[in-house]
Write a protein that binds this DNA or RNA. Structure first.
Length: 424
RNA sequence: GGAGAGAUGGCUGAGUGGCCGAAAGCGAUCGCCUGCUAAGCGAUUGUACGCCCUUCAAAGGUGUACCGCGGGUUCGAAUCCCGCUCUCUCCGCCA
C-alpha cells in the first residue's frame, strides 16, 4: 500500500509510474475521496471537541450539585450529529482504503521500462549448458520411465496439477529441501523458521495477496483461513503490528513450506509435469531491512538464490523484471531462471523482490531509529531459495543420461544416503 | 467439545462512570554525581490521523482517536451491557 499523503502530494509522479506499469487507475476519484475524508474528519473532530469540553463542564456542575440539564440536552443533539458524521466517515474511509489497497507499488528508478516479459533484460548468466549425445527428455518422461513421478495417480488421488512422487524422486525432493535450508542457515546467515500453512485474511492482506488476488488462493471452507501460496506470507507477518529495534535489523529468515496456488487463469499452460502445480514445496528467504540498505540486501538475496544453482552445477540466467512484468507489491524483482535442456529453455526457479515499505505499511512493521528515536517502516524483501519442485525438474533434466538414468549432483549425495545415480 | 479465569503502555501491574493517555515499579534515553564498575540524584520516555505554522519536510503548537476486537447504554466509558477473538486452568477427545 502506498502512503496516502505521499499519493496526494505526488499524484503526477504516481500517475506516470503506473502508466509505465501499464496500470489504468482513476486517481481523480482518489483525490475526491481523500479530500472528502479530511472534510468529514475535521467536522467530526470539532464536534467531538465540543462534546468533550461540555461533558467536562457537566461533570463539574454535578459535583457542585448544580443543574446541568440545559447542557445535557444540547449535547444529545451533538452526539447524534457525531454519529451521522462517523457513519459517512466510515463509508468514505472504506472506499478510500479499497482504492489504495489495489494500487500497485511504485517501481524503483532502476527498473527497466517495457511492455512484456520479452523486455526483461538479462543481467547475468552462469554455467555451461550440458551437451548431450542424444535428444534430452523432459522431466515428466524421465520421471515416468523411472517410475518415480506418477502424474496419473496424483490426478486420481486429488486432481489435475497434483503429483505423486515415489522412491528416488520423493527422496530427491526432500534432499534438495534440506540442502537448501542448510546452505542458507549455515553459509548465508539466515534463521530457519517453520510456520503455519494456513493464515488469516489480515496476513494475506498485509503481504498483498488480498484483496486483489483472492481468486488465486485456496480458502478453507467455513473459516476466514487461506492456504498460503508462499511462505512469504506467514514469515513476513511474523512482525506484523510490531515496532522493532534498529539494532535487530537486518533480520534474515528462511523457511520451508508447502505452497498452494489455485492457478486461476493458467489453464492450458504447463499442463504436463511439475512446473505448475496446485501444491508445491518451496524454500523461501525473507528479509526485514532498513530502507537505506534494502537494495544492497536485494543483491545479496539474489546471490543467495543463485548460489544454490551454482552448488548444484546448473546453468542459469538472471533477469530484471521490466515495468510491465513486475508483480503487484514489488518495487524491483530479479528472476533467476534455470536452464532446462528437455524444454530447451530457461525457466523461472526463483523470484527475488524488494517491496520497500509497501508490505510494511500494510502490515504496520516498523522500527525505531536509534539516533533520533523516530519510528519508520522497514523494508521487506523475499526470494525463493529455491522452488523445490522446479529444482527437481532442473536436476533431472540437466543430469539425465542416455540410458534414462539420472546422476545425483555431488552436493545432494550426502542427503541421498550417498546415492550417485537414479536408475529404474 | 464442556466448565472456569483473564486480555491495560517496551515489560510488571493499579485503576468499577467525569479529576485517566492512564498510578507505581522495572527497563530505556539524556544529564549530574562518583578513581572504574555498581549505586544514587534529576529530566525525558506510546502510536495513528487531522489542522495551524513552515517553500516542502523537520521542529513546534493544537485537536481527535486508541486500555484485545466490534456494537450498545450515557451529556460523558479503560470502567456498565451485548457479541466475537485470543490466552491460561481443569475435564473429554486426539497425532
Amino acid at each position: 500500500m502506498l502512503d496516502i499523503k505521499y499519493l496526494r502530494q505526488n499524484i503526477d509522479l504516481v500517475r506516470q509510474k503506473m502508466d509505465e506499469r501499464g496500470q489504468k487507475i482513476d486517481f481523480d476519484r482518489f483525490l475526491d475521496l481523500e479530500a472528502k475524508r479530511r472534510d468529514i474528519l475535521q467536522a467530526v473532530e470539532s464536534l467531538r471537541n465540543e462534546r468533550n469540553s461540555v461533558s467536562k463542564q457537566v461533570g463539574e456542575l454535578k459535583k457542585k450539585k448544580e443543574d446541568a440539564s440545559v447542557l445535557i440536552e444540547k449535547m444529545g443533539d451533538v452526539s447524534i450529529r457525531i454519529k451521522e458524521y462517523d457513519e459517512s466517515l466510515r463509508v468514505t474511509e472504506e472506499e478510500l482504503n479499497a482504492f489504495v489497497m489495489i494500487v500497485p507499488n511504485i517501481q524503483h528508478e532502476s527498473v527497466p521500462k517495457g511492455t512484456g516479459s520479452e523486455d526483461n533484460p538479462v543481467v547475468r548468466t552462469w554455467g555451461e549448458k550440458p551437451v548431450f549425445s542424444f535428444e534430452p527428455k523432459q522431466h515428466f518422461d524421465l520421471g515416468e520411465n523411472l517410475n518415480i513421478l506418477d502424474f496419473a495417480r496424483g490426478a486420481k488421488i486429488t486432481g489435475a496439477r497434483f503429483t505423486l512422487y515415489r522412491g528416488a524422486a520423493a527422496q530427491l525432493e526432500r534432499a534438495i529441501t534440506n540442502f537448501m535450508l542448510d546452505l542458507h542457515t549455515g553459509n548465508h546467515g539466515y534463521t530457519e523458521v517453520f510456520t503455519p500453512f494456513m493464515v488469516n485474511a489480515e496476513s494475506m492482506t498485509a503481504t498483498g495477496q488480498l484483496p486483489k488476488f483472492k481468486e488465486d488462493l485456496f480458502k478453507i471452507e467455513g473459516m476466514e483461513y487461506y492456504l498460503i501460496p508462499t511462505a512469504e506470507v506467514p514469515v513476513t507477518n511474523i512482525y506484523r503490528d510490531e515496532i522493532l529495534e534498529e539494532e535487530k535489523l537486518p533480520i534474515y529468515f528462511v523457511a520451508y513450506s508447502a505452497c498452494f496456488r489455485a492457478e486461476a487463469g493458467s489453464y492450458g499452460k504447463d499442463t504436463r509435469g511439475l512446473i505448475r502445480q496446485h501444491q508445491f514445496n518451496k524454500v523461501e528467504m525473507v528479509k526485514f531491512s532498513k530502507p537505506e540498505s534494502s537494495y544492497d540486501e536485494l543483491e545479496k538475496l539474489t546471490a543467495n538464490a543463485e548460489e544454490v544453482l551454482k552448488k548444484l552445477g546448473i546453468a542459469y540466467r538472471t533477469v530484471c523484471l521490466c515495468t510491465a512484468d513486475l508483480g503487484f507489491s514489488s518495487a524491483k524483482t530479479y528472476d533467476v531462471e534455470a536452464w532446462l535442456p528437455g524444454q530447451n529453455t530457461y525457466r523461472e526457479i526463483s523470484s527475488c523482490s524488494n517491496f520497500e515499505d509497501f508490505q510494511a505499511r500494510r502490515a504496520a512493521i516498523r522500527y525505531r531509529r536509534k539516533d533520533n528515536g523516530k519510528v519508520e517502516f522497514v523494508h521487506t524483501l523475499n526470494g525463493s531459495g529455491l522452488a523445490v519442485g522446479r529444482t527437481v525438474v532442473a536436476v533431472m533434466e540437466n543430469y539425465q543420461q542416455a540410458d534414462g538414468s539420472i546422476i545425483v549432483p555431488e552436493a545432494l549425495r550426502p542427503y541421498m544416503r550417498g546415492l550417485e545415480r537414479i536408475t529404474p
